[in-house]
């Protein structure tokens, strides 16, 4: 179960005055069970890239394979692909439309042709998975708070039981508490179901804490594809791309400059704390 991208190119508005080469020769392998972060500046091609994963966009050139099958083959079942590769768009709460939360989450499983009973069961499970309170199930989705709406929207995709879950900026526009809650829930999901999770973000802090592989996009190209620790080692190059390493990377590098022998390869505040304490204890 994997997605392979082979020399994928995508050009918006081909042969018009607004031509834009959004993706340039992308080669990627998405393995099972990974927690992947995709990071890049606005307009670096992240959103375009993830829409290729479930066949919403057809590449201008190059091929995409899902489990060894070329998804642009005419006999390839795209509907099945979309149920297996769940994509949660940016501001997913804008897609809600049903009379109540529960019905909205049922929309996905019903489209898969499941029985009413099965669809409802999945909707219930999905809403539970994102930690949505049961007494709000029959509320209108438009009366909920921003964070709650987003949970409902994520549940709407989870109810299709995807093997791969892609989230485009799932925390955009949420307050810090809402952000942490959503990210923690995604992490728990990943751990309990062993689902492949791809998290698109421009916040280094968010991804550093959760992902075990980080893909950095810049101007339509994959710049780095490595563990977060390795990627943040290039923090000066990241800055040139308009990105920044997590704040702890800067702190550790500063300490190193002051001849305090800390290991700069830490990515989270917790690790940084441990590292600094270790160095001070050894003195």
């Amino acid at each position: 179960m994997s997605i392979i991208l082979d020399k994928v190119n995508y050009i918006y508005g081909s042969e018009t005055a607004y031509e834009l080469h959004a993706l340039k020769d992308i080669n990627l392998v998405i393995e099972d069970g990974q927690f992947i972060g995709i990071i890049g500046h606005t307009g670096s091609g992240k959103s375009t890239l993830i829409q290729h994963f479930n066949g919403l966009i057809k590449p201008t050139s190059g091929s995409i394979y899902y489990n060894g099958e070329d998804i642009s083959d005419s006999d390839f079942n795209k509907k099945k692909l979309r149920s297996k590769v769940g994509l949660v768009f940016q501001y997913p709460e804008h897609q809600l439309f049903e009379v109540n939360v529960f019905e909205d989450v049922c929309f996905g499983p019903r489209n898969l042709g499941l029985s009413e009973k099965e669809a409802q069961l999945r909707a219930y499970e999905a809403l539970k998975m994102v930690g949505f309170e049961e007494d709000l199930f029959y509320q209108s989705p438009f009366e909920l708070s921003g964070g709650q709406k987003r949970r409902v929207a994520i549940a709407g995709v989870l109810a299709m039981k995807p093997d791969i879950l892609i989230l485009d900026e799932p925390t955009a526009g949420l307050d810090p508490k809402g952000r942490d809650e959503i990210l923690e829930q995604i992490k728990t999901l990943h751990e309990t179901t062993n689902m492949t999770v791809i998290l698109v973000s421009h916040s280094m802090e968010d991804v550093a804490k959760y992902v075990d592989r980080l893909i950095v996009m810049n101007q339509g190209e994959v710049k780095y594809d490595d563990t977060p620790k390795e990627v943040f080692g290039h923090y000066l190059e990241l800055e040139e791309m308009g990105l920044a390493a997590p704040q702890v990377t800067y702190i550790m590098n500063r300490l190193r400059e002051k001849n305090i022998p800390v290991n700069v390869n830490v990515t989270t505040i917790e690790e940084a704390k441990e590292e600094i304490l270790r160095v001070f204890k050894n003195r």
Partner: peptide
């Protein structure tokens, strides 16, 4: 653009 986005989001949820 909004139509395009919502359309894609619903297609991703299996809409036809």
């Amino acid at each position: 653009e909004e139509t395009d986005k919502i359309m894609k989001a619903q297609i991703a949820r299996g809409a036809d």
